[in-house]
Amino acid sequence: MSTPTIYVGLGVVLLMLFLLVLVLLLTRERADSRRAPEAAAALLSKGAFPIHCRHFPQVRQALSAADQQYLEQRASASIRRKARRERRKVAQQFVAGIKEDFLRLDRVGRTVASLSPGVSRKLEFERLRLMLRFWMLYGLVRMQLAMGVSVVTELARLTELVGGLAAQTERAMAALEEASARRLQSGIRA
């Protein structure tokens, strides 16, 4: 391929990226007018996460092997089919919820980074890489779920991870609020 062709190709890619950024900027601005890190910090202080992980016990019950066995023994074929469809739907919705929790926590990471006086290049690039990887894996897991593979045990591990991170973040934010209040008090005294 000649150099000019590469350049024209690059130009087309840039043009497409430009359009993508344009759409992103315009739609995100409308959908979320509180894009400022300050607004995200307000989100943290409300403790609005995680939402979906908290419902895992109910979801686990709905997807349990015992329930499945019970249905196999007692229910008619049509009810079993309907139940399988419903279980799959529940699992898909739950994984989608996990994604929401993940995104919320990832936003916490980015917000803290944007409001920090210094950030580590290594950690920031690692988080970006992990996020891209998550999207890829999440897509594959969704596909697997669509094909009917049972993932209840793995969902439990997933939930523990996201929930654990949220608890740590909440602790850090509580410490932050305390520190801010102390600074404010000492500022008033001074």
Partner: peptide, 8 residues
Amino acid sequence: LAPQVNYR
């Protein structure tokens, strides 16, 4: 927080 987030 950042190392913990990345670890998770």
